[in-house]
Design a protein around this nucleic acid. Structure first.
Length: 876
RNA sequence: GGGCGUGUAGCUCAGCGGUAGAGCGCCGCCCUUACAAGGCGGAUGUCGGCGGUUCGAAACCGUCCACGCCCA
């Protein structure tokens, strides 16, 4: 096809070639590559313009674009594109995180297919393999972001494992270590027996599983106690039974030792006020090595911790259960206890909440383990305070509570992972138990016996540095000076704890208390058209690329933007994407029509005195919409702004302005020229307003309309302040008449295109100047010889008399009028009742009362008019 | 168990103190020379239930019911 974005620069009067249908798939890719080639998205740190910065919440290197990304990217793109147009040095910085567990899993799978494990090839070779994997398969999402139209600065693309970012990781680790905010401790952590690593609290997904609750009798003779558990296998590691100190039932047992079944051990009964006497029997078994609460009890009572499983969840305790995995052991142990008559109650299924690894869904095993931790209290407090004192705003505000609940109750963060892919912990251990943390510029201790910690850091440890590590920190780079703090962090509300809180903590800490962004804009989740959650495991999951190919990226983007109510979930369905595609096509054709009728952006807009009321009306509306859209942008109201533009474009510009102007264009001459200039202005502004949301179609149309280089670098429209309420009222009357008569025509069964002779009596009304347009819109012919008004429609002070050449459908007309009369009478009754209410008159504000009075007057006039019409109707 | 949120047209959602709205879907007529991915017209709601506050409640308060989410 011809390249329809090109237009001869001198060809002001040549009719640009636009096909009758917009075919996005053919042009979007080229447009995007051109934008990138021209460097529109590359930000200049030396620019004098004020900076506007958004760093992308780094997607996972193993991932691909899903609708959630498409959604958030659309919004970030809209924000940065608008600011660029407003004259900011706009930077949207892309990149990915290295996704420690996920990526390592991918490569381990590859190795497994070759019959190898990572241990077979060794750490160094393994890490090399991961880099190879990344080169080959990683970052699929980056290409998909181009397809979506993301206006990111590719020259600044970052990856958390890059040298610079790794340097940042090591720097902050050392700083935290030196400040005593990183420490090593043995605690219960969330252990994934499949990934073979610790994971943090937020990487655990809880779900209700069918389990079993068995009540076990511990002890012998009189010294017995019944405890309930869902994890019978851990009883091998029990080192106490705990009861509440005030619990009379067990007071006699406290301090005594009882026999632990299936073992040759005895365990103490301890009193601990954290035990809930109302739950179960009020006595609980205590396994400090396999349960966080039990660990806490163990600490308080100096209990021994006995680990009964290995890292894969296999029982290691000598005896009949050794070698069984934890679930096999559970039933074996319950069986053995049953034989001994120690099972006093069983509840099966017992639905309870069980933690699963968010990466592989394996049931988490709480495990006692030596790990590295971040002491979060001071960091989290600072992160909370930044929001409390208003330096950072959360949109929508209702989400603040969730943020505070998190940062104010945050547990220390386990940051070490038993993986090979990631930032290795920069701590070295000496032959005599020394421990040295090494900064990026320092050499590790030399000599015999020094070894580096074998663990790597949680991926989020590096992602948390993203807003400044990507800009060059710890160096005071020009980028950092120019673009930090960033402006907005936009992400899903489900991710507050992952990105938001961590970036806040690290940003404030590393950047001397300067917040990483002043605004946190939180979105909901994308759902299917029935409001059901979309997930990879659900069949309702949609690949946004399929929709982009079928309907264009603009259509997907517009649909998502239109659904973006602050903080609320966004449902999306194919029908809605189609509707957005239709909108794009509508804009396409309207612009095409405009260009065929001499729409122009040349020269200044004529003075208001030279404009028709129709022109002044649309310009007045246009400027109101500019102001409205700006206000919505400032409040992150993407649904509202998209909706406002949709309705302005379609319901006002296309359905009325263009239609009303057709007669002017047909007549030609100066009037047509003026309207062409106005139409050009309206489209020019409208396309620029729409561009951040639907960049592709607007680019093609705007460059064709204006002959300029690109709307990407066009100026954002400004409200000129022009308002013309009189013209707005006048066109409102025109719309009323046209709609009324159309209704009549439709009720009378007239075909839409059928010409009808009519006499218009418009003298003394606002409609007088619009007779031609009204006749055009209503397909009314001039009254000819022998005109015979068979229907007379009084509306808006005017009279439209029609000659339907013969009898009209009196029944239809009577029905229509009866309906109108009923509406008017109800209105009269409602308003009369209000005005008859003393309390209302006394207490309601004057404008409200006045409004009701006007409504009553209108209703009465309508009733009189309609009644007269009905009376004038011939007998059926 | 604790906290938060939501129940408005067939579906998905706006509206959050003064005449119940949108998109999609539905019904009827129409290829009116920009667009059938379109035009014109139309129908559709005890605004979850009950109680209260108010001159006035979809909106505010209480309560119940039903869903959803987060945390434990």
């Amino acid at each position: 096809m011809t390249d329809n974005t090109q237009r001869p620069a001198s060809g002001q009067n040549s009719t640009p070639e636009l096909p009758t249908q917009y075919t996005p798939a053919e042009v979007e890719g080229q447009l995007y590559e051109r934008w990138v080639e021209r460097g529109y998205f590359e930000a200049d740190a030396k620019s004098d313009k004020p900076a506007y910065t958004i760093v992308i919440p780094p997607p996972n290197v193993t991932g691909s674009l899903h609708l959630g990304h498409a959604f958030q990217h659309t919004l970030m793109d809209a924000l940065t594109r608008r600011k660029r147009m407003q004259g900011y040095e706009s930077l949207w910085l892309p990149g990915m995180d290295h996704a420690g567990i996920a990526t390592q899993n991918k490569v381990e799978q590859q190795l497994a297919e070759e019959g190898k494990s990572r241990h077979d090839i060794g750490r160094e070779a393994f890490v090399e393999r991961v880099w190879q994997w990344k080169e080959e398969y990683g970052g699929r999402i980056l290409g998909q972001m181009r397809r979506l139209g993301d206006g990111v600065d590719w020259s600044r693309e970052r990856f958390t494992m890059d040298e610079g970012l790794s340097n940042a990781v090591q720097t902050i680790f050392k700083k935290l270590y030196d400040d005593g905010l990183i420490y090593r401790a043995e605690r219960i952590i969330n252990w994934c027996p499949r990934c073979l690593t610790a994971i943090s609290d937020i990487e655990v997904d809880y779900q209700d599983d069918d389990g079993e609750l068995v009540s076990l009798k511990y002890g012998e003779g009189e010294d017995t106690v019944v405890v309930a558990t869902t994890r019978a296998e851990t009883m091998l590691g029990d080192t106490a039974v705990a009861v509440h100190p005030d619990d009379e039932r067990y007071r006699h047992l406290v301090g005594r030792r009882i026999k632990l079944p299936l073992t040759d051990r005895t365990i103490p009964v301890v009193a601990d006020s954290h035990v809930d006497p109302a739950f179960g029997t009020g006595a609980v078994k205590v396994t400090p090595a396999h349960d966080p609460n039990d660990f806490a009890i163990g600490q308080r009572h100096n209990l021994e911790s006995i680990t009964v499983m290995d890292e894969r969840g296999i029982i290691t305790v000598h005896g009949p259960f050794q070698g069984l995995d934890r679930f096999e052991a559970r039933s074996a142990i319950v069986g053995a206890l049953r034989e001994q008559g120690r099972i006093v109650a069983e509840k099966r299924p017992y639905v309870h909440s069980v933690g699963h690894c968010s990466r592989c869904s394996t049931t988490i095993e709480p495990r006692l383990s030596l790990q590295w931790w971040v002491k979060v209290e001071p960091l989290a407090r600072a992160a909370g305070d930044a929001v409390r004192d208003g330096r950072v705003t959360i949109h929508p505000k209702e989400m603040e509570k969730r943020y505070f609940d998190w940062v104010d109750n945050m547990h220390d963060w386990c940051i070490s992972r038993q993986l090979w892919w990631g930032h290795r912990i920069p701590v070295w251990y000496g032959p005599d138990g020394q421990q040295v943390c090494v900064g990026p510029d320092e050499k590790p201790p030399a000599g015999e016996g020094w070894t580096q910690d074998s663990d790597v850091l949680d991926t989020w440890f590096s992602s948390g540095l993203w807003p400044f590590s990507t800009l060059g920190w710890p160096d005071r780079t020009a980028d950092l000076e120019k673009f930090y703090p960033t402006d907005v962090l936009l992400t899903g509300h489900d991710i507050i704890f992952f990105w938001v809180a961590r970036m806040m903590m690290f940003g404030l800490y590393a950047m001397d208390g300067v917040v990483p962004f002043h605004t946190i804009a939180l979105t909901g989740l994308v759902r299917d058209e029935f409001g059901k959650k979309m997930s990879k495991s659900n069949p309702n999951s949609v690949d946004p690329l399929d929709w982009m190919d079928a309907y264009g990226s603009d259509a997907v983007r517009f649909t998502l933007a239109t659904g973006a109510n602050p903080g609320a979930d966004v449902p999306i369905g194919e029908d809605w994407v189609k509707a957005s595609r239709n909108f794009a096509n509508k804009i396409w054709n309207a612009t095409r029509f405009a260009l065929m009728n001499g729409a122009s952006v040349e020269g200044p807009l004529p003075e208001p005195e030279k404009l028709s009321a129709t022109d002044r009306w649309i310009l007045s509306r246009l400027n109101r919409v500019v102001a409205e859209v700006d206000a919505y942008y400032e409040d992150y109201q993407f649904a509202k702004l998209s909706d406002a533009l949709y309705h302005f474009a379609w319901d006002e510009v296309f359905d009325w302005y263009v239609e009303l102007s057709k007669t002017t264009f047909l007549k030609g001459g100066e009037g047509a020229q003026v309207s062409g200039r106005v139409l050009g202005e309206v489209l020019d502004v409208m396309l620029r307003l729409l561009h951040p949301v639907i960049p592709f179609v607007t680019e093609t149309l705007w460059t064709t309309l204006t002959g300029k280089e690109s709307v990407v670098v066009a100026d954002w429209p400004k409200d000129s302040g022009f308002r013309d309420p009189a013209a707005e009222a006048e066109i409102g009357e025109v719309q009323r008449v046209v709609t009324e008569v159309r209704r009549f025509r439709s009720d009378q069964g007239l075909q839409p295109g059928q010409r009808v002779p009519a006499r218009l009596t418009l003298d003394g009304t606002l409609l007088a100047p619009h007779e031609d347009a009204i006749r055009q819109l209503l397909r009314l012919q001039p009254e000819g010889e022998g005109f015979n008004a068979t229907a007379t429609l009084p509306v808006a002070g005017a009279v439209v008399a029609l000659d339907l050449s013969g009898t009209i459908d009196v029944a239809a007309e009577r029905k229509r009028l009866a309906k109108d009369l009923a509406v008017a009478e109800k209105e009269k009754a409602d308003t009369t009742r209000k005005l008859g209410n003393e309390a209302f008159l006394a207490k309601a504000p004057e404008p409200v009362v006045a409004k009701i009075r006007t409504r009553l007057a209108t209703a009465e006039a309508d009733i009189a008019r309609i009644t007269a019409q009905i009376a004038a109707l011939p007998e059926a």
